[in-house]
């Protein structure tokens, strides 16, 4: 068992233990960071929320939205948050829960606040500009996918026969990488990835584990390889794979268990080879 797997197993056991001692019919305190908009001050607000079996952070937020009264009896506005599929496959509802980043839809209250009066804190991701309350703007994350040209450069969408053949093992490697849902957990937990509101600086700021892994994914595809050189150039530049500090938090918080640190190593090797090859044979 790798250390990452061991850590996951340990965390799963902790959650299971909490589930086992969860009290029925209890109420839980939700401490939520509220912020009315960019540049506005933020404040904490607490809510007392009755917990049903199977409650998760989303269902509690919905309850608060329908009953927006703080624990002190103050009427407030319904909290704002981002969500989509609620199946942990779209990535929208990512936030910082009890200090750690994760999807809120799959965060069961029984596993995090098993006893009466236990507290759950909700904060927006800190590496992206807040839109309002728990909703952040992750545009920079998608911009990173443009930087590494994360696509297969097909000629056209017209019928031109099948794609390249591929071994099942290779397909499995690509599939694992391709499960990345652009949630941003790896970026939130990364000490090298910092908030950058100035869009003009995005192309020079650290690109993050997700995009490095996507570059690897497309370099692995027969047709995707056509852009390999351009991807490696981007990853060699400022903000590329060289800026990774190897804290390796990314792989530990990735909800899809994507081997991000492996991708970082692989892209490190690819950029090394690319640089040596360019030195001896490159035209530039």
């Amino acid at each position: 068992m790798s250390s990452t797997e061991a850590l996951r197993e340990h965390e799963a056991q902790e959650r299971k233990a909490n589930r086992a001692r969860a009290k029925a019919g209890r109420s839980v305190i939700f401490k939520i960071i509220r912020c009315d908009g960019p540049g506005k001050p933020s404040r904490w607000e607490s809510f007392k929320v009755p917990v049903e079996p199977g409650s998760n952070v989303i269902s509690c937020l919905k309850w608060i939205a329908a009953n927006p009264v703080t624990i002190d009896g103050k009427q407030t506005t319904p909290p704002v948050w981002d969500s989509g599929c609620l199946e942990e496959v779209c990535g929208a509802c990512t936030m910082v829960i009890n200090g750690k980043v994760r999807q809120s839809c799959s965060c069961l209250i029984d596993e995090y606040a098993p006893l009466e009066g236990d507290t759950i804190t909700l904060e927006p991701m800190s590496k992206f500009p807040v839109v309002r309350d728990l909703w952040v703007d992750r545009a920079r994350l998608f911009n990173a996918l443009k930087r590494v040209k994360a696509w297969v450069p097909i000629d056209s969408t017209y019928a031109q026969g099948a794609g390249p053949k591929e071994s099942p093992e290779h397909q499995q490697t690509r599939y694992r990488l391709s499960e990345c849902m652009s949630c941003g957990c790896c970026l939130e937990a990364c000490p090298q990835y910092n908030i950058e509101e100035d869009e003009s600086k995005w192309d020079e700021s650290f690109i993050g584990a997700h995009a490095i892994s996507q570059a690897r994914l497309f370099n692995e595809h027969e047709t995707g390889k056509r852009l390999k050189g351009e991807r490696l150039e981007e990853l060699s530049d400022k903000g590329g794979v060289g800026d990774c500090g190897n804290a390796q938090n990314c792989v530990k918080v990735c909800p899809k268990h994507i081997p991000l640190t492996e991708s970082i190593g692989a892209m490190g090797r690819a950029t090394t080879i690319h640089a040596i090859a360019s030195f001896f044979t490159g035209k530039k």
């Binding site: 990774c244 640190t261 190593g265 490190g268 090797r269 090394t272």
Partner: peptide, 11 residues
């Protein structure tokens, strides 16, 4: 890791 000598977690 930076130079790409070790890639897999076990390496």
């Amino acid at each position: 890791i930076t130079w790409g000598l070790t890639i897999s977690e076990s390496a």
